[in-house]
Design a protein around this nucleic acid. Structure first.
Lengths: 140, 140
DNA sequence: TTCGGTGCAAAATGTTTGCACACAC
DNA sequence: GTGTGTGCAAACATTTTGCACCGAA
């Protein structure tokens, strides 16, 4: 429940936060602030973009959301459960496809043991050439 | 040799590119455009920041550099050899430490086989709590 | 000589902030 | 009622772009 998430984080349960979280929850892919903002206002939510950013920041700090950085440096967010995914993006055509299993999970434990850090999140982005583009490569 | 790198990428061997690449090569850590710019002009290089950005972009596209995104969405760059590193950053005190082995290397092959993508780069950033901070956590 | 590269200034993009008001607790 | 959260507008930081000139091949 969204209310519980907010309570757990000691945050007030406002209409805005509720709507933002429910959009993120309903998505399978990580979403950007802009995307959330657009969806909100399609549903006549009338929520300010600053509020979206502020909410995303505070929820990431509290580890309720996972901040994912895309190639271009913009951020996406998803619920920080163990079901998240990673993508590989073609640097030519910008197509991206899902990697069906998070390779970090297995590694986390080892890293945690080695470093003493409690690992709460990670961001992984692979880049490459998709099959189509790698066929007609001439290095340009 | 820097000239060879540029030749290989079919790029002209200019003074600016040479200086930028030699700064990146001399660093152990990934460096930002700004940092390169500052170092350049300390060495009275007098190179424009746009040029730095353009160079970094083109060299990343050619896979000579690896673009690394930091938590805040800004980019750093390092030479794209097999010796690069990853870091884990504490979300409280922002300390970061080195992870001594890149966990993705082993995975790349499998992913490449599964997806048909040619994997040319990746960006991995772990977040967590360092040992010191995880001791006095009370969720704020 | 040609075309790619650079410098400069200006714009675009994504994100953050200060302030006054609003609303959850 | 109090203090956290929000809307708005303005600021900010990073990165990109248009254009004229420059210089490597």
């Amino acid at each position: 429940m969204i209310e519980d998430l907010l309570k757990k984080a000691l945050l007030k349960n406002t209409k805005q936060r509720h709507m933002i979280l429910s959009i993120i929850k309903s998505e399978k892919k990580p979403v950007t602030a802009e995307e959330i903002y657009i969806k909100l206002n399609k549903n006549k939510g009338n929520i300010n973009l600053s509020t979206v950013y502020r909410t995303l920041n505070i929820l990431s700090e509290k580890n309720i959301l996972l901040k994912i950085l895309k190639e271009d440096g913009t951020a996406s967010y998803q619920i920080n459960d163990n079901l998240h995914n990673h993508y590989i993006t073609c640097y030519k055509c910008h197509n991206s496809i899902l990697i069906d299993k998070c390779p970090i999970k297995d590694f986390s434990e080892k890293i945690s043991k080695d470093t003493g850090y409690v690992i709460t999140g990670h961001s992984l982005q692979l880049t490459g050439l998709c099959p189509k583009c790698s066929k007609h490569v001439n290095n340009d």
